[in-house]
Design a binder for these strands. Sequence first.
RNA 1: GGGCCAUUAGCUCAGUUCGGUAGAGCAGCUGACUCUUAAUCAGUUGGUCCAAGGUUCGAAUCCUUGAUGGCCCA
Length: 497
Amino acid sequence: MEENVLLQAKKEKLNKIISSGINPFPNDFKPDSRSSEIFALYGDKEHTFFEEEGNVSQFCLAGRIMSLRNFGKSCFAHLKDGDGKIQLFFQKRTLGEKYEFFADLIDVGDIIGVVGKPFKTKTGELTLNVTDFKLLTKSLRPLPEKWHGLTDVEARYRQRYLDLIVNSDVSETFRKRIRMIKLIRKFFDEKGFLEVETPMMHHLVGGATAKPFKTHHNALDMDLYLRIAPELHLKRLVVGGFERVYEINRNFRNEGISTKHNPEFTMIEFYQAYADYKDLMKLTEELLSMLALEICGGYKISYMDMEIDFTPPFKVMTMASALKEIGGVEIENFKDMESLKNMAKSLDIQLKGFEGAGKIITEIFERTVEDKLINPTFITEFPVEVSPLARRNEKNPDITDRFELYIAGREIANAFSELNDPIDQKERFLKQMEDKEKGDEEAGDIDYDYIRALEYGLPPTAGEGIGIDRLAMIFTNSPSIRDVILFPLLKPRNEGY
RNA sequence: GGGCCAUUAGCUCAGUUCGGUAGAGCAGCUGACUCUUAAUCAGUUGGUCCAAGGUUCGAAUCCUUGAUGGCCCA
């Protein structure tokens, strides 16, 4: 980028600072407090409190100057530090010669350390009366406009650091996301789950239906895939005796980008031995209602123009009843391929030819029901064909003991009682291979080692995956997944940044 | 993949209808000012109008292609 006047002006100041013998980038200032602590101690105190000798102590803060209001011989500023903002008051009377240095060479955007005692201004704002200060980092670029901030979404995503500096709601959103993940960890830790890490690079595609990213290991001269799900490794751990495990980490899917899809996204997957999918419904209700309470302050929350109620228990519907009652789709015989294909056609669903009844039914469900499920709703009885790793229902072998949880018209979680019959599992893998040969790019590979693990014996187990980003969107009222991912994927600009 | 929209100063935006010297606010710079908080007042600097090509005496503006982003659909 070309040097502009604004950068030049700041560099001139930088040079003046250096030539006066001051290091513009020192690292020997240690703040002893944060603005939020000063507010906690003095926020509710009256003016008179500050006038009494000995009532207030001296504090040492560091942060970025966000605004300056200069009156010649005194100056107000706002300092933004780790979790808040506080006004600073600089006076020539107090600072003497150093005041000139401040007025001449310190700008909005600079990072400084300050020492001073709090007081309240005429307007009642808690303010630090600065008795000494030190420049800690000279900023060379101007911050975005103080009133409108940075609103250009592209710039906000590309320069998230700037977005975080100037848009306090953005910072708040990510703090909520971080807290949410912490609460999820605590929830599972307290239930005796072990947090584990499994490979991100797989030599087989499995654990979900999605197109993978391909990469290559040079020394082994071997193609690898970024994982689309950790499922098969986590269940291997259950075979190994880790009866309760979870992993919170990234999955990678080589598909389109939208307000609901980022190529890399964060999931929690967890597995519990001696539990079935119904146990996981209870656990999911407990988890999500707790999160609503902790993050949003209540079970009923607003998301965009929707009201969502997380009060347990959540609604439960079978896929067939949801199709009938919500989608208004009457399917008489779920095995009648002809009428299913006609139904799909009338809904403008494009079939590629390899789909069986189960896939078509699921497509019809996604088209007619999904976006109408606003309050948390468990949909059960998914077809076997779209559930290659789920346990068959004992009464109806065409469906599985599985649910997906929908909130705000989106799939948030997917869970099932695990298929632990190695013979059935092998047959399902073989069916996947057939689909792959017929052109299903999302079909997985046969994982013979996983079948071998099942042959040693996977205890009866239930497992679930929950999309962390989508959950964060709902709990932070964010319209796009990019608003809850710090650095969403963007194409690079020609300039390289 | 398709449709619509956007891209102008560091930032937020006018200007495009109907082609005729590139505009404002904030930020910056110079000066004034010791309780302001979008501080105020006076003056002032700053432009690859996303890129390339075309039409034209003349293009930020019209046309074509491309880039990036947004929204919607698939």
